[in-house]
């Protein structure tokens, strides 16, 4: 009897703590959307700057995510599958952008890719400008959000037992084909989840972008710009519409993740 009462008490306490946590996460977003969501959606029709910022954010975040997936997947696989000297150091270096304050990340990118840098200068000579351009936005997004993809992708590959691949190899598949036919499909669900997190982080990026490319404006920079220029009432609808629109692809991708059986191994 005492055990049952204790179990009930523990259940109630756990439910309370979880509810408070959920409220803590949902309340600010809910408040923002309820305060300015409707106005933000209405302004979509009448505010071309907002529409452009939204489109720019979606496109640049998607390009950054695709670049992260293409470049990061082999690295994540390498770290997850092979034990080599310096693996821990490589993994730590790849996590490093997560620890750097984002404006500092923007400054670092500016130093590496700006007009004063050899790379930036060479690119400029070739007619390709990084700072103050869409490419700068993509670079900033990629730099700050790719470590999230790499980390989650590493876990996704690590969850696939290497013996599946071993069996595929003994069944005649060279390494690349075994990866394509077995490992990749089994890790897909984790990789999609990793890409979603990366995309979401790229969409929300502000600090690094504002240093590298103030104009053209992504939504986060536009929201900041309106806040500093016109005050909170003008900034709120921009922020609210970003939240509402980001919710759509996030929900779709999460639903795909939970509904599909593939990858649940």
């Amino acid at each position: 009897m005492a055990d049952r009462a204790l179990y009930r008490l523990a259940s109630v306490v756990t439910a309370l703590v979880a509810s408070c946590f959920l409220l803590f996460l949902a309340a600010p977003v809910g408040q923002l959307v309820s305060a300015a969501g409707a106005r933000g959606l209405a302004e979509l029709g009448s505010d071309p700057e907002l529409r452009d910022a939204l489109a720019l954010t979606a496109v640049t975040a998607t390009i950054a995510t695709v670049a992260g997936v293409v470049g990061g997947t082999p690295i994540a696989y390498l770290i997850a599958r092979y034990a080599f000297r310096g693996r821990a150091l490589l993994a730590a270096v790849l996590d490093l952008p997560l620890l750097i304050p984002h404006p500092v990340a923007g400054i670092a990118l500016l130093l590496a890719l700006g007009r004063q840098s050899p790379i930036g200068n060479a690119l400029l000579a070739a007619g390709f400008r990084i700072s103050g351009s869409r490419a700068g936005i993509i670079c900033a997004m990629l730099f700050v959000s790719a470590p999230l993809y790499l980390s989650a992708a590493r876990e996704a590959f690590a969850r696939v037992d290497p013996r599946y691949e071993a069996v595929a190899r003994t069944l005649g598949d060279p390494a690349w084909r075994a990866f394509r036919r077995v490992t990749l499909p089994l890790a897909t669900r984790g990789l999609v989840a990793a890409a979603v997190v990366m995309w979401a982080r790229a969409v929300s990026e502000f600090g690094a972008i504002v240093v590298l490319t103030y104009n053209p404006k992504v939504v986060s920079v536009l929201s900041y710009d309106r806040f500093t220029s016109y005050g909170l009432p003008e900034a709120l609808p921009v922020a609210a519409v970003l939240v509402l629109l980001a919710l759509v692809p996030l929900t779709i991708l999460r639903a795909l993740r939970y509904e599909r059986g593939a990858g649940d191994f």
């Binding site: 037992d161 013996r163 599946y164 071993a166 069996v167 595929a168 003994t170 069944l171 077995v182 499909p185 089994l186 593939a262 990858g263 191994f265």
Partner: peptide
């Protein structure tokens, strides 16, 4: 041909 005790059938 390699057959593991736990089979390792490709689940997909």
């Amino acid at each position: 041909g390699l057959v593991y005790q736990h089979a390792y059938l490709f689940p997909h």
